[in-house]
């Protein structure tokens, strides 16, 4: 807890950057629990296309989301080189399948540029800002926007 407080007081935060296809995204490091390799998941019936299934995470049943499909891009074809980011979203834990984890960034709020006006609904739903680092564009993703509570509790 004190760690968070310290970071906030300095106005900087740490982000984990990852790659999907040729795009880069990042999420707050505080929501990431662990990063692990891909293992085949158990398929779930009647699930959305981006839902890859469930994995055993030391006894907990962990749903795996193909983040590429969730963001409206071409669905991933998972290989052992793919990576699962285990993240806390709200009160639940989900695994996000991405191509690779690329970086840990320390940024201040000034580094984050607002999202430009785009027409696509889906980008607006999750994008919270854009970072320009080393001439790369990294999109800051808010996971709560991707998995709103009402969706997971719809049942």
């Amino acid at each position: 807890m004190s760690y968070v407080v310290k970071n906030l007081s300095q106005g900087s935060r740490e982000l984990i950057a990852f790659r999907i296809g040729n795009q880069e995204f990042c999420v707050s490091i505080m929501s990431v629990r662990e990063i692990r390799g891909w293992t085949p998941a158990t398929k779930m019936p009647h699930s959305p296309a981006y839902m890859m299934g469930v994995l055993n995470l030391r006894g907990a049943v962990l749903p795996i989301v193909d983040l590429a499909a969730r963001l409206g891009m071409r669905p991933a074809e998972p290989t052992p080189r793919h990576v699962i980011i285990v993240a806390q979203v709200g009160r639940k834990i989900v695994g996000l399948l991405v191509d690779a984890v690329s970086d840990i960034l320390t940024v201040t709020d000034e580094n984050i540029q607002p999202v430009p006006e785009v027409s696509s609904e889906i980008e607006r739903q999750f994008a919270r800002g854009i970072l320009a680092i080393d001439k790369r564009m990294i999109c800051l993703v808010e996971l709560e926007g991707l998995f709103p509570d009402h969706e997971s509790e719809a049942a």
Binding site: A60, V61, K92
Partner: peptide, 27 residues
């Protein structure tokens, strides 16, 4: 018996999940 609802949601036709001896999740 492992809860599916804990991290996901209720799935029609599926009561819960479990983990088999090979470490895989089975519904």
């Amino acid at each position: 018996i492992k809860s599916l609802e804990a991290n996901y949601m209720h799935v029609p036709g599926i009561a819960a999940a479990t983990i088999l001896g090979d470490g895989r999740v089975a519904l």
